[in-house]
Measured scan of single mutants.
Amino acid sequence: EPREEEAEKYIKRANGDYDKAQELAKKDGNEEIAEAIKEYKKR
């Protein structure tokens, strides 16, 4: 799923820090991806 791939990219950029990844996504205006990262975190 493209959303998950995007989320993974942010998580990698944030060195595995989900909260930081979420912030990066929000900064880029990717609210949807920020949500996907939140879902990811719950797994």
Rank of each mutant, 00 (worst) to 15 (best):
R13N: 09
Y10E: 03
E23I: 08
A25N: 00
A7L: 13
L24C: 03
E1L: 13
E39Q: 10
A7Y: 08
A34C: 04
I33F: 02
K26E: 09
K27P: 01
E6T: 12
Q22T: 09
I33G: 03
E5G: 12
D28H: 04
E35R: 11
D28W: 02
E4N: 15
R13K: 12
D28R: 01
R13Q: 14
K20Y: 12
Y40F: 10
I11R: 02
A14Y: 02
E39I: 06
R3E: 11
G29N: 06
N15G: 12
N30G: 03
E5P: 09
R13I: 12
K42T: 07
L24T: 04
A14N: 01
R43P: 04
R3M: 15
A25G: 01
I11T: 01
D28I: 02
Y10H: 03
A34E: 05
I11C: 03
K12W: 07
E31M: 14
E35T: 08
A36I: 15
E8C: 15
K27G: 08
I37K: 01
E31N: 13
Y18D: 01
R43D: 06
K26Q: 10
I33Q: 03
I11G: 01
E6H: 06
R43S: 10
K9Q: 11
N15Y: 09
K20V: 12
E4Q: 12
E35L: 11
D28Q: 02
G16F: 10
G16Y: 10
E6N: 07
K41L: 08
N30T: 03
K38S: 08
K20H: 08
K42V: 06
R43T: 10
Y40I: 15
A21I: 01
A25C: 04
K41R: 10
R13G: 05
G16I: 01
R3S: 13
A36L: 15
D28T: 02
K38A: 11
K12H: 09
Y40D: 05
D28E: 12
R3A: 13
D17A: 02
E4H: 14
E6L: 14
E4K: 11
R3T: 13
G29Y: 03
I33S: 03
A34Q: 05
K41Y: 07
I37R: 01
K9E: 14
A25P: 00
A21K: 00
N30E: 08
E39N: 08
Q22Y: 15
E32T: 10
E39F: 04
A34V: 13
E4D: 14
I11E: 02
E1Q: 12
G16D: 03
E4I: 13
K9G: 11
Y10K: 03
Y10C: 04
D19P: 02
E1H: 14
R43Q: 10
Q22W: 15
I33W: 03
E31R: 07
K9W: 13
G16Q: 03
I37G: 01
E1F: 14
A34H: 04
K12G: 05
Y10I: 04
E35V: 07
R43G: 06
G29E: 03
N30V: 05
N30D: 04
K38Y: 07
Y18L: 11
K26T: 09
A34G: 05
Y10W: 03
K38N: 08
A7C: 14
E31F: 15
E5Y: 11
Y18N: 01
R3K: 12
N15F: 10
Q22N: 04
K26H: 09
I11W: 02
A36H: 08
E5V: 14
D17V: 02
Y10P: 03
E1C: 15
I37P: 00
K12D: 09
E8A: 08
A7I: 15
E39M: 07
Y40P: 02
E35I: 10
E35G: 05
